[in-house]
Nucleic acid binder design. Structure first.
Ligand SMILES: [Zn+2]
Ligand SMILES: [Zn+2]
Ligand SMILES: [Zn+2]
Ligand SMILES: [Zn+2]
Lengths: 132, 132
DNA sequence: TTACATAGTGTTATATTATAACAATTTAAA
DNA sequence: TTTAAATTGTTATAATATAACACTATGTAA
């Protein structure tokens, strides 16, 4: 079993906000939302985000510059992430597929380069947006 | 066969620069480099980049906010991209693997959502950086 | 306990990346 | 030709992210 990370004050505040959000949050939207809790400046937000990403508690959606909480039993998948992104409503879902992660974890390119991490973003229409 | 795009003046200048570069280029680095050719402001660069990405002539490396020329017979793979990124020297290579693209093109998640596009970024050490 | 190292915080300023808005020009169709 | 669409030039500003430095809290070892 891996070490359970104890979140610091700022990390806790920011993680809770992201974890409760139904949609990915952007750094400055987070900043705005936590100012009443005493977090007043960008570096405080970015530091907490960096640590939370390192821990695997949250993931950055690179194509959106936004962050979502991990719901795949956390740390294990911090280095192997896959998301589906709806191009209409911007709904983002973390994909949890054993066959996908197995395929990608074992993928080797022509040079035999072995990878320690990957991030995959799928784009399309979610069920809701596809049927109207 | 698909329509061959003719590049406009600014698109040509910016594409040529990216195409000749051995490494991904960032927008403001591009701007700096083309100022002597009369492209003086960020919107001119970003517009050309947007079009070139649409056409599949270049790709954006999302995790690096940088652009590289496509070397996979262009347009076909604009909506299905995969890259390997060295975390030490930042070398980026476009991956061209029939089995990978077939696997991902056919991937369906639990909800049966079908995707029209994906982007995959692998991180690791390139051969050179791995052996020293 | 004390000393030290490490991690986290608060703060100001600034760097980097990207777009809004609008006028002028070029290109391609009708 | 005349109209529409795409591209360009330009100024200003928005959005995203980090540098730097002083200070505080926390953990570890003597
Ligand atoms: Zn996750
Ligand atoms: Zn949707
Ligand atoms: Zn390509
Ligand atoms: Zn390397």
């Amino acid at each position: 079993m891996h070490k359970e990370h104890t979140l610091t004050k700022n990390q806790r505040i920011i993680f809770d906000l992201i974890d409760k959000s139904p949609e990915p949050l952007k750094a400055y939207s987070i900043l705005f939302n936590v100012q009443k809790k005493g977090i007043k400046a960008p570096p405080q937000v970015y530091r907490a985000l960096d640590k939370l990403v390192e821990m695997g508690k949250i993931h950055k959606i690179e194509s959106r510059n936004a962050f979502i909480a991990c719901h795949n039993s956390s740390c294990q998948v911090a280095k192997a992430t896959a998301f589906s992104i709806c191009e209409i409503c911007e709904k983002v879902t973390e994909i949890s597929s054993a066959s996908l992660s197995k395929y990608l974890a074992n993928f080797k390119d022509k040079d035999g380069m072995k990878y320690s991490k990957y991030n995959l973003e799928f784009f399309g229409l979610c069920k809701k947006c596809n049927t109207r």
